[in-house]
Design a protein around this nucleic acid. Structure first.
Length: 472
RNA sequence: GGUCCCAUCGUCUAGCGGUUUAGGAUACCGGCCUCUCACGCCGGAGACACGGGUUCGAAUCCCGUUGGGACUACCA
C-alpha cells in the first residue's frame, strides 16, 4: 500500500490506558508495515477536562512502548483558525446553521421525547431561522432527513445507517471550540490521514463524520474499527478494574516488550504464534488479522509474557532497568558484574522487575534477616557440627567455583550419610534467610568466600544462642 | 427505549463448507527433572450460546432467539 498515513489521537483527559495503547500500537504497526507515516495528535478541544500533564503522560507512555511518531504532537487547541475556516465553508454551503437553543432547553426536549417513547433528537427548531453568529450560539451540522449512509469498515464489513436516525449535531460550541466529530474530520482531512484505526466505540460516530466529509466535498479515509478491550466483568475497562494505565505497569516492573506483545495479541493474531519481536510485528501486522469480537483484559497472560521476556532479556539490559527498583528499596548497589551475575540467577524466577528487586536482597544486603519459620525449622543446634565442618572445608577451598563447591557439599553429605537437602536447606537459610532461592552453589559462587563464611558463622552463632536458651 | 456491533475451552485465539476424535497459548491439575523455589519437559481436564433452515456435508453460509457490548452530550 502506498502513502499510508495513520494517527493516534488521544484526548488528554487521563492517563494512557491499555485500550488506548493498543489503538496506538495498531496504528503505529500499520504505518510501519506499509512504510507510511504515523502522526500524534492531541485532541484537547474539551478545555474543562483536558490537562497538560496528561499529554506528558501519553507521550511518556508511547515512548516507553517504543512507538515513535513522524509528525506532531499536534494540538487541536492550536488549530482553531482551521476549524473556523471549515465551519464557514459549511455555513456558506447551507450545510450548517447557527442555533440559539439553550442546552437546558435541548435537554428538556430530549427528556420529553424519551418519556413519550420517541427518539431523543434535536428537533431542528433553528434550522430555518437564518440566525447569524452571536452570544451563546452554537453551529449545528444539517443532517439529511432521509437516505442511508454506508460505513465500509475493513474489520466489520459494511454497516448501514439511516440518516433519519442522525441528529443535527453541534460542530461548534458556544465558546467557539469545535466538537469532536467535526474536529476529527477537519484534522484527518487536512493531515491526509488515509486510514482511521480506532476503537469500535466510534462506529456510531462514523456516519456523521462521513456526512461531514461529503458536505465538504471530500472523500472519507478507510475506516477500521477495532473491538474494545473489556474488564473481567465484561464492561468497559476503567479504574475499578485495577491497574489500567500503561505507566502503572512500567512502575510495577513490566517490560515494554511484554506489554507490546500482550497488547498486539489482544484482538490480533498470526496463526498459533504467541511471541513476536517488534520487527516481526512490523513485518506481519495486517488489518485482516484483527478479530471482530471484544476481548477481556487478562493480567495473568501479561504476567506470563513478562516473565518470558525477563528470562530472554540480556542481563546487562535488565541491570539498567532494575536499578531504579533497587534504589527505591534503598539497597546498596554493588559493582556491575556482581549485579549481573545475580540477575542471571533470578531471571527464571522473577515475573516482574519488582519481584526481582525483592529477591535481590540477600545478594545486596550485608546483614540478611532470617525468615523466622525458616530459621526455626532449619537452623537447629544439631547443625552446629555440620556448619563447623563446612566452614573449615570452605576455608580450605582455593577455587570457589560451582563445580568445586558442589563436590564439597556432596562429600559432606556422603560422609555424614545424610541427603544433600538436609545440609543444603540450612545453609540456604543461613545465606539467604529463606527456604527458596536460586541454586545453592551458584549463590555461594556469586557471594564469594568471605561473605559466605561470614554468613555461615553468623548462623553458627545463632544456633549456639539457641542451644543455650534450650538447655539452661 | 432506540441505533449499531459481537458470540469457539475461565481468558487470548486458530479455524475462512469436507484435511477436525475442533488446534495453540495462558491459567488450573498430575508427573518428570531436582539442594529449595522457579525454569524446562511430558501428560490431563476444559469450548463451537440455543433453535431453525441451506447443503450430500456446517464451528464455518442464512434467519430467528438468547446473551454480551458500544453509542445515544455544547466528552472524546
Amino acid at each position: 500500500m502506498e502513502n499510508v498515513v495513520t494517527r493516534f489521537s488521544p484526548s488528554p483527559t487521563g492517563t494512557l490506558h491499555i485500550g488506548g495503547a493498543r489503538t496506538a500500537l495498531f496504528n503505529w504497526l500499520f504505518a510501519r508495515h506499509n512504510n507510511g507515516k504515523f502522526i500524534l495528535r492531541i485532541e484537547d478541544t474539551d478545555v474543562v477536562r483536558s490537562a497538560e500533564e496528561y499529554t506528558q503522560v501519553i507521550i511518556e507512555s508511547l515512548q516507553w512502548l517504543g512507538m515513535d511518531w513522524d509528525e506532531g504532537p499536534y494540538f487541536q487547541s492550536k488549530r482553531l483558525d482551521i476549524y473556523r475556516k471549515y465551519i464557514s465553508i459549511l455555513l456558506e454551503k447551507g450545510r450548517a446553521y447557527y442555533c440559539d437553543c439553550s442546552p437546558e432547553e435541548v435537554e428538556r426536549k430530549r427528556k420529553e421525547a424519551m418519556a413519550a417513547g420517541k427518539k431523543p433528537k434535536y428537533d431542528g427548531r433553528c434550522r430555518t431561522r437564518n440566525l447569524g453568529p452571536g452570544q451563546g450560539r452554537v453551529v449545528r451540522f444539517r443532517a439529511p432527513d432521509f437516505g442511508t449512509t454506508l460505513v465500509q469498515d475493513v474489520i466489520k464489513g459494511s454497516i448501514s445507517f439511516d440518516n433519519s436516525e442522525l441528529d443535527d449535531l453541534v460542530i461548534q460550541r458556544s465558546d467557539g471550540m469545535p466538537t469532536y466529530n467535526f474536529a476529527v474530520v477537519v484534522d484527518d482531512l487536512t493531515m491526509g490521514i488515509t486510514h482511521v484505526i480506532r476503537g469500535d466505540d466510534h462506529v456510531n460516530n462514523t456516519p456523521r463524520q462521513i456526512l461531514i466529509y461529503e458536505a465538504l466535498g471530500a472523500t472519507p479515509p478507510v475506516f477500521a474499527h477495532v473491538p474494545m478491550i473489556l474488564g473481567q466483568d465484561r464492561t468497559r475497562l476503567s479504574k475499578r478494574h485495577g491497574a489500567t494505565s500503561v505507566l502503572a505497569y512500567r512502575d510495577a516492573g513490566y517490560l515494554p516488550e511484554a506489554m507490546v506483545n500482550y497488547l498486539v495479541r489482544l484482538g490480533w493474531s498470526y496463526g498459533d504464534q504467541e511471541i513476536f519481536s517488534k520487527e516481526e510485528l512490523i513485518e506481519k501486522f495486517t488489518l485482516e488479522n484483527i478479530g471482530k469480537s471484544a476481548s477481556i483484559f487478562d493480567p495473568e497472560k501479561l504476567l506470563w509474557l513478562n516473565s518470558y521476556y525477563i528470562k530472554e532479556s540480556d542481563p546487562d539490559k535488565l541491570a539498567d532497568l532494575l536499578l531504579p527498583f533497587l534504589e527505591r528499596k534503598k539497597y546498596p548497589i554493588s559493582d556491575r558484574n556482581y549485579l549481573e551475575r545475580a540477575i542471571i540467577t533470578l531471571q527464571p524466577r522473577a515475573k516482574t522487575l519488582t519481584e526481582m528487586a525483592d529477591m535481590m536482597d540477600f545478594y545486596l544486603l550485608e546483614n540478611i534477616e532470617y525468615d523466622s519459620k525458616a530459621a526455626r525449622k532449619f537452623l537447629k543446634p544439631t547443625m552446629i557440627p555440620v556448619f563447623e565442618d563446612l566452614i573449615e572445608k570452605l576455608r580450605a577451598l582455593d577455587e570457589f567455583t560451582e563445580e568445586k563447591l558442589e563436590k564439597v557439599f556432596r562429600n559432606t553429605s556422603a560422609e555424614l550419610n545424610v541427603k544433600l537437602g538436609k545440609i543444603a536447606q540450612p545453609v540456604r537459610v543461613a545465606l539467604t534467610g529463606r527456604t527458596a532461592s536460586p541454586g545453592l552453589f551458584e549463590i555461594i559462587d556469586i557471594l564469594g568466600k568471605d561473605k559466605t563464611i561470614r554468613r555461615l558463622e553468623r548462623a553458627l552463632e545463632f544456633m549456639r544462642n539457641r542451644k543455650e536458651k534450650q538447655a539452661p
